[in-house]
Every structure is written in C-alpha cells, then in structure tokens.
Write a protein that binds this DNA or RNA. Structure first.
Lengths: 339, 339
DNA sequence: AACCTTTGCGCAAACCTTTGCACTATTTTG
DNA sequence: CAAAATAGTGCAAAGGTTTGCGCAAAGGTT
C-alpha cells in the first residue's frame, strides 16, 4: 500500500484490472450486465485491497450522509448517556452514525449545535431541549424544510414533531399511591420550577394521586425549588419544620432526593421510620445510598431506541402524522419507603 | 426555498446572480481577483440564502473529513462520558466533530468499531481499550498506514502511539499514606484482576506506599476480586473476618468501594471509626453516600482534552515521537477516612 | 444474407467545491 | 500607436460513486 494513500478507490481497482470504473462499480453491486468472470475477479481484488466505498462520495451523490445529529443538555449524566446508547444501537442497525452535541443546558449552545449539525449535513436531529429553552424558532426552520426532527423527554411543538416522553403524571401518581398503601398519610412533595413541563406533569400526578387515595391536598406539603442541591435542602428543611411535618416525601429528581436524604438524616430522623422517601433517579445511585432509595426509574435505553425509531419512520415517510410516544416508568421499591 | 432542496450550493448562487461557480467561490473566499462590487453582491446573497459550504464536497476535495473516531468501553459511566466531553471541547475548537462508538468492553465490538469508523473516513482514532482486549492487530493497521491514533487510560503499543494515563501508582501511594497519617496501621486493599494494567499499577503503589510509611506488607490484607459487586462483597467479608481485621480498606474502583461500604455497614461496623474506607471514584457518587467517601478522582475532563491535543499534534506532525502524558490524580478527603 | 436482439462493457453527467490556467477587455507603457 | 501588463472572469479538472445511454460484437431469426 502506498504511503499517504489511505483508501483504495474504484479507479485504483479499475486501473489494476484494466476495466472502466463503471464496470468495477457494477461488478461490486452485482449488476447482471457484468459477466460472471469479470465480476468475480473484481470482487476478489476489492476484497484483497480492502476496498470500502467512500461515504463522502456517496453522500454527495445520494444527498444523504447517513448521519443523525443528537443534542442533549449534557453528556455526563447517566440519563442522557444511556439514552444515547439506545439511539446508537438502533442507528447502527440501520447503518447510520450519530453526531453528538451538548447544549450544556443553555439556549445559546443549543442554537449553535443545531446550526453546526446542519452544516455537517446530518439527515436530521434528535433533541432534548435545554433547561433554558423557551423559544423554538431554531427548530421551526427544520420543520419548514422538512428536515427530520424528533424530541425526547423535554419536548415542544407537539403535533408537528414526533416526541417520546415518559408518563410523568402516572409516575407521580404511582409514588403517591405507593406511599398510601404503605400507611403514609401526610405526603410531601418537592417540585421543580413551574416552566418545566416535567415538573407540571408530576405535580398533576401528585394531586390526582392524593385524590384517588381519598387524601386531602395540603398546600404546605408542596414545596418548590430550583433544581439545585442547596435549594432542595432548604425546601426539605421547611417541610420538616412544619407543625405537622410530612411522614413521606417525594423528590422530583436525583439531586433533590439525595439532598432531602441528607437533610432528613442530619436532623436525626430515620428513613423510613420517621420520614419515608422516594425519588426519580437511576438504578445505580439509588442502590448506593443507605437506605437504598425507592425510586421511579426511566426506561432510558428504550427511550433512546424509540426516539431513533421515530426518526427513521420520519425519514421513510416524511408526510405521516408525527407520533407521540409515551413510555411507562417503573417504581422500584427499596428500603426507603417501606416500614 | 424549494421543498426537498435543503441546502443551497455555489451553483444556485451562481445561477441566481449570473456569474460562474468559480467566481462565487472566489468571492466568498475574498479572493482579490474578484471585483469589490461583485464580491459584495455575492456575499450578500450567500448570507441571505444561508449558504454553508458542503463538507462532503470539501472532504472529497481535501481528503479530510474533520472527524475523529472515539472508541470507549461504554458510554454510560461518568468516567467515559466526562472524558468524551473533554475530547469534544478541544475538537470543537479546532472545528472537528467526533464520532463515538462503544466497544461494550468486548474485543469483537472494538474491532468492528475500528473498521466502521475507518469506513467513514475519520481522520484518526482516540481509543480506550476494552477490558477483553489483549491482542492489538486491529490497531497495527492504523499505525502502519500512519493514521493518527491516541490511547487513553487503558493503553498499548506505548512508544509507537501517543498515550494519556493517570499515575495509578502514585494515586495508590497517596491513599496508603493518607491512611497512615490519619493513624491507620492495618491497611487492606481490594485489587482487581491481574491482567489489568491499572490493577497492577495500583498494587505497586499500595506496596510502595506501605514501605514508605515503614509498614510491613501483610499478604492477608491484599484481596483480589473480579470487578463485580458480589465478588467485592465477599472479598470485604474475608478481610473483616480475619483474626486481625484491617482498620482501613482501599477499594480499587466505584463498584468495589460501595460494595465494601455495604458489607462493612451490614456487619454493624462504623465508618471510619471501626474501618476507614477510600475508593477510586467520581465526585457525585462519593458525596451521595453516607458517610461521604474519601476518594481518588480522575481528572477525566482534562484527560479527554489532553487526548484530543495529542491527536491534533499527531495530525499536524505525524513524524514526531509520540508523547506519553501522565496526569495526576487528586485525593479528595471526606468523612470516610478521617476519625 | 440481411436484420434484430442480446451480452458486456465504456462514456459522461451529476453531486459540490477549489484552483491552475486561459481568455477578454481594459489600462498602462515604451 | 502598437505592444505589453493588468484586472476580472470562466473553463475544466480533481476528488469517488452511481447510472442512463450508447456502442460494438456476438448470437439468433427469417
């Protein structure tokens, strides 16, 4: 192999055998026009020389890069990396590659990521919105140009764009009822900021869960926080300092559940004897703490798979009505919520 | 904008203005040959039509895709995703994209990933070997063809390929000495399988650490396990059941440290009063458990950055002697190891 | 024997960009 | 005023692939 020349082309093969480029191309694609002997000879040489078609050339020709852009708020949390794994698995089966970009939870970087990915000619985008994102013009451009787009978890433009989310309301309801069944009656809830759809949905589930158990809603048991650990600790503190404190608390995500756990322990209260605790979080973290944390786990890998499937549906049939997929969560009961 | 036509080309602009493609190309590159008015007009139209050069065409022309292939054992652990973030950051600054593949810790998928990435014409590879990988032919092909290659964390072919690793021996030594300084004298160590270089290096550090503190090495205090949680629990059990059990234990990674923590607690022993504990793990997990776990943290993000930097060095100067970068770890002291 | 069909292959265009060279006007120089 | 320089633009090739069409030779049909 010549130095500096890293890949053989059809031309190289053609020259070596003494036929035209088209013949080589056809032979490799088993075109019936080419005689069996020639085909055999060409295919052997191609194998020997380790020929693989140049995807750049194919991309130019077919106007299809077989690449999908994926934008996530960050790369380092298990939730997103697991979803990416799911996307990757389905993409790989279809012979697609994914190009990953991180918005770092900022709108600015999200917009930049969209533009950069489009520049690279990805065939479309699979996106989870950043926490900041409240205007969606940068996606409207894709919608107008019929560039395939799928949202997951944090979504917008529903009805126009395929989405995959988990049933947050149902999940929160499950938690509430789980508490009820285990004898807890004063169920507290630490929510997130109002503008996040997941926070709203979970709040709805909390309320409807209370109702379905015949429990009355006590406003003082619903606390809000931004999603920081410190704020969550304060919120927990307020709940525990109530004249009639909750006997069970449900935190809206990882950070908050663990912060609540710390605060409860630091007040000398026992989990679950004095206060039960349930969170929304992933398997590994939940089993590492003491007591192991009962929690709602997301089907992250499946979520990624589903997002990718919706994407390919879109590629194959751009006109179809966009699907809205809702996945179910699972309540995994551990020690923190069972007396 | 026409439907179905997603990107404008030089040709489109040329036709619209009534000049040749070359003129448009030159105008956009501010070539002095083109008259100022024409240049201005073309640049305005290009901006209006949202023109961006087609990277496929550029790739074909320049024989450079501006893509780097990255292969990691898995995507879902913080260690790797954080490294990827580091790689991405440096790559982005250089206008490169990264294509991520996961080997799932198997040799077979690693080989497949190498081949697939080469097929896509990445300009080179940044790789962390899978746990299984003990033969390296699939990389020799790259070395021979002068395709840029960088290894991080788990490395091979040192001397031929740039590598970036952490100083595992030093890290293990730090831990041992930290124990000593805090009054612990019977220091246990739960190692991993022998064939892993990181396990060997850390064992060396453990031994030299003991020596430098004037402590004698007791073989019964060195336990081995495969890296599973159950095995680690058993190993911890054996240590704690010794006639003279250790007063401090050092676990070689996340899984093992947390498993040890569980086992210690389940025997009714207190951390750090009865047994101190230190692990190799990441920030988040360590602070979530109770007591917070003292641990060695890897400079993961920096490791990714460094790997990317070595990669570009290689691109710019393929002949240079490959660098071997060794990064320092940090011992973050928390409650689990200080009486 | 004259024509038609089939077989097997090559030419050239298209996808998009850059760039050396050629070309045409204009302007400058001797 | 003729010759030469200069400014401004277009042509065409290259990079790799697919594919409609054309073409030649061979075989088959009356």
């Amino acid at each position: 192999m010549e130095k500096g020349k890293r890949h053989v082309s059809l031309k190289d093969l053609a020259n070596e055998i003494g036929v035209s480029i088209s013949t080589v191309s056809r032979a490799l694609n088993n075109h019936p026009d080419i005689s069996p002997e020639v085909t055999r000879k060409i295919q052997q040489l191609a194998a020997a020389r380790n020929y693989t078609p140049n995807p750049l050339a194919m991309g130019l020709l077919k106007q299809a890069t077989r690449m999908i852009g994926v934008i996530v708020p960050d790369l380092v949390t298990h939730f997103y990396s697991s979803i990416i794994s799911g996307i990757e698995q389905v993409a790989e089966e279809k012979g697609y590659y994914i190009l990953i970009a991180s918005s770092n939870e900022t709108l600015q970087k999200e917009i930049k990521a969209v533009n950069n990915l489009l520049k690279t000619r990805v065939e479309g985008l699979i996106v989870c919105l950043s926490q900041e994102t409240r205007s969606y013009e940068h996606f409207d451009r894709l919608i107008q140009n019929q560039i395939p787009l799928v949202f997951f978890d944090r979504v917008c433009r529903m009805g126009e764009v395929p989405t995959v989310v988990v049933d947050n309301e149902d999940a929160a309801q499950k938690i509430t009822r789980h508490f009820y069944r285990n004898g807890f009656r004063r169920i507290g809830y630490i929510a997130g900021p109002d503008h996040l759809s997941i926070s709203q949905e979970r709040t709805r589930g909390y309320l409807s869960g209370l109702k379905s158990c015949g429990l009355e809603f006590r406003p003082e048991l619903l606390e809000k926080c931004n999603l920081s650990s410190n704020d969550a600790i304060e919120a927990t503190g307020r709940l525990l300092s109530l004249p009639e404190p909750p006997d069970a608390i449900f935190g809206i995500n990882d950070t908050i559940a663990f912060a609540a756990m710390k605060e409860i322990k630091s007040r000398g209260l026992r989990i679950p004897e004095d206060v039960a605790l349930v969170g929304f979080t992933d398997e590994f973290h939940s089993t590492v703490v003491d007591p192991a944390l009962t929690s709602i786990t997301h089907p992250t890998f499946e979520m990624g798979q589903e997002a990718a499937r919706l994407f390919f549906k879109r590629i194959e049939n751009p006109e179809a009505k966009p699907d809205q997929v809702v996945l179910n969560t699972k309540l995994v009961v551990r020690k923190s919520s069972v007396k």
